[in-house]
């Protein structure tokens, strides 16, 4: 009698910056390649059609013990996730994630940013974190800390001019990531300052 294929164990979701990775302990069988199949159901399915599970977009048959479910989790509701092992014609029982996952629990890291100057222009380029991210950028002339300016930058990955700088005066910038879909934002990044060389004009 063929031993039943063990089900994957220790399911967990690691979610950072709206990238959700379902992970589990691999099923190890000597000289065999075990595959896995991942399925999900949103709160709607669990409430209205609980028998329905939907094959994950990227992992209906996958080799590694992890699956990027970011394209499956498309609403801000709890999602059930399950995995089973596949070996040839054999399939294991399903293992279900203990706690449903909601994308509003994702970890939002400080946004990477590069502050530079182009001629007299103060320029920022933010990390491209994907279409769900916007950024609140705050910038000020160092001696005028009370006079902060802010600007919403709709997407990362492109240099954005903030202001025309006076020579000889340092300007500082900090930024935070905004994810409207879950109504949350990251903490502010460390401030970075740049300066255009030259004689500083007297402050009016």
């Amino acid at each position: 009698e063929v031993a039943a294929l063990p089900a994957p164990q220790n399911l967990s979701v690691h979610s950072t910056n709206m990238k959700h990775l379902l992970m589990w302990s691999p099923v190890v069988l000597a000289e065999e390649t075990v595959y896995y199949s991942v399925e999900y159901q949103g709160e709607y399915e669990s409430l209205y059609t609980s028998h329905i599970w939907i094959p994950s977009k990227w992992c209906s048959l996958t080799e590694g013990p992890e699956c990027d479910v970011s394209d499956d989790i498309t609403a801000t509701v709890p999602y059930n996730l399950r995995v089973r092992a596949i070996l040839g014609s054999q399939t294991s029982a399903w293992s279900i994630l203990e706690e449903p996952f909601n994308r509003n629990s994702t970890i939002l890291t400080l946004p990477g940013m590069k502050v530079s100057k182009d001629g007299f222009h103060l320029v920022i380029e933010l990390e491209d974190l994907g279409p769900q991210f916007e950024f609140l950028v705050v910038y000020w002339r160092k001696e005028l800390v009370t006079k902060e300016h802010d600007k919403v930058v709709r997407r990362g990955g492109i240099p954005v001019p903030l202001e025309t700088m006076e020579p000889g005066a340092p300007y500082c910038v900090k930024a935070q990531a905004l994810v409207k879909a879950i109504g949350r934002n990251s903490a502010f990044s460390q401030e970075e300052c740049v300066e255009v060389q030259g004689e500083a004009l007297p402050l009016m």
């Binding site: 001629g119 007299f120 222009h121 492109i158 954005v160 001019p161």
Partner: peptide, 23 residues
């Protein structure tokens, strides 16, 4: 497009825009 690496961006609903601080 200021040079091959850097562009200036403006946007909005108004009809008149001005890129300033140019050479």
């Amino acid at each position: 497009h200021v040079n091959h690496t850097y562009q200036m961006h403006l946007g909005g609903k108004q009809r008149e825009f001005e890129f300033s601080g140019l050479t």
